[in-house]
């Protein structure tokens, strides 16, 4: 395609031509990248899903020794008002006895209130409350036992029941998520 004229001034021409092509090419690429973003972003949780991402829970009707289960982000969350005995039991456990060592103090904000995601850390079944050898929860699927702090004590589950992010809005209300 190059004529003799082009070859003579090849160097200068190549630089200018390449610059133009490079600029056009990169400008196009930038646009294409920007264009791709909405298509990727649309799969992220949308506004209506994010609006339900946090749930407020009224604690006042819960008596000591009572648990409620609420749905948060599609998962069950156990909110338990622990009795004095349960709290003492949880705090007395030696770290060395725990497959997943964690102190009770780090798992609660107020010792009376235990808030945990009710999904067994083994394979995802929902543990049953007031059951098991450790006075806490028992998962019927594969026999994991959790204590009064929701920590795994016996069975195949590798980790303690997850504590979600929550805050006390006041003494009677927590906001989860």
């Amino acid at each position: 395609m190059d004529t003799k004229k082009d070859i003579d001034t090849a160097d200068a021409k190549v630089t200018r031509r390449d610059f133009l092509y490079l600029t056009t090419g990169s400008f196009t690429a930038v646009g294409a990248g920007a264009l791709a973003w909405p298509f990727i972003s649309q799969m992220n949780p949308d506004a209506s899903v994010k609006a339900l991402a946090s749930t407020e829970v009224d604690l006042s009707p819960i008596m000591p020794g009572q648990s409620i289960t609420i749905l948060w982000r599609g998962k069950p969350v156990f909110v338990r008002r622990r009795t004095e005995e349960e709290i003492a039991e949880a705090q007395a456990v030696e770290q060395i006895d725990l497959p997943d060592p964690e102190t009770d103090e780090t798992r609660v904000q107020k010792p009376e209130w235990l808030v945990m995601v009710g999904v067994c850390t083994h394979l995802g079944c929902i543990p049953l409350g007031n059951k098991g050898e450790y006075n806490g929860w028992f998962c019927p699927c594969h026999g994991s036992h959790y204590d009064t702090s929701g920590r795994i004590r016996k069975g195949p589950a590798p980790k303690n029941l997850e504590i979600p992010n929550y805050v006390f809005l006041n003494d009677n209300t927590i906001k989860i998520g």
Binding site: M1, D2, L20, F27, G31
Partner: peptide, 20 residues
């Protein structure tokens, strides 16, 4: 604005390609 700038760049690129 982006598309207008891009069309200018493409216009000159096209012109250059067809020059010979």
């Amino acid at each position: 604005i982006y598309l207008i700038i891009l069309s200018f760049l493409l216009y000159f690129t096209n012109k250059r390609i067809w020059r010979d």
